[in-house]
């Protein structure tokens, strides 16, 4: 694997300590989204202290990454327009950093289109269902847990040859 590439399976928080919640809306009153504590611009990422963040990753879909479970009140409040579902363990986070990161992602997706006017998007990377997040440095990719090994081996396979400068 190229040294310029940093691949991790965690986000600073231990995986077991991360609670994941998917929010799905059947009817989102546009003005109310922010009052619900969710980013309102599709593809936006809102970050809070302590490593929590919320990804507006697909139409009517948010992923909450938080160190603690979602409160009952928040769950109840959602019933008017959607749902809160605990999906802890469904997604595994991978950090891709270094100069090879963009090149690696560009070998499986049109990066520019995917992240145009967005900081995150649901996308298939190396045939694996993923959520791609642009970070200040590099990317974080949330991969479905059952295919995380497949994702890593695809990245490693590319890493053997390293990025091609052309």
């Amino acid at each position: 694997m190229s040294e310029s590439l940093l691949l991790e399976r965690a986000l600073g928080m231990r995986p077991a300590a991360v609670r994941l919640v998917e929010v799905a809306a059947f009817n989102v009153p546009r003005d109310d989204v922010e009052s619900l504590g969710l980013p309102s611009r599709p593809g936006a990422v809102s970050r809070e202290d302590g490593g929590s963040c919320t990804l507006y990753f697909a139409p009517g879909r948010w992923l909450l990454v938080a160190p603690s479970p979602v409160s009952e009140t928040r769950v109840l409040a959602a019933s008017e327009w959607g749902s809160w579902v605990d999906v802890t363990g469904k997604w595994v986070a991978m950090a891709l950093q270094g100069e090879a990161a963009e090149w690696m992602l560009a070998s499986t997706v049109d990066l520019e289109t995917t992240l145009r006017n967005r900081d995150c998007a649901a996308v298939t990377l190396f045939d694996c269902p993923s959520i791609l997040v642009r970070e200040a440095q590099g990317f974080v990719v949330w991969v479905r847990a059952s295919v995380a090994d497949a994702w890593v081996s695809a990245v490693e396979r590319l890493g053997v040859n390293g990025p091609r400068t052309v």
Partner: peptide, 15 residues
């Protein structure tokens, strides 16, 4: 469409 039901795939969230 628009009715009060959501679907979430939780296959990988439960062993």
């Amino acid at each position: 469409a628009g009715r009060a039901v959501t679907l979430t795939d939780v296959t990988d969230a439960w062993s």
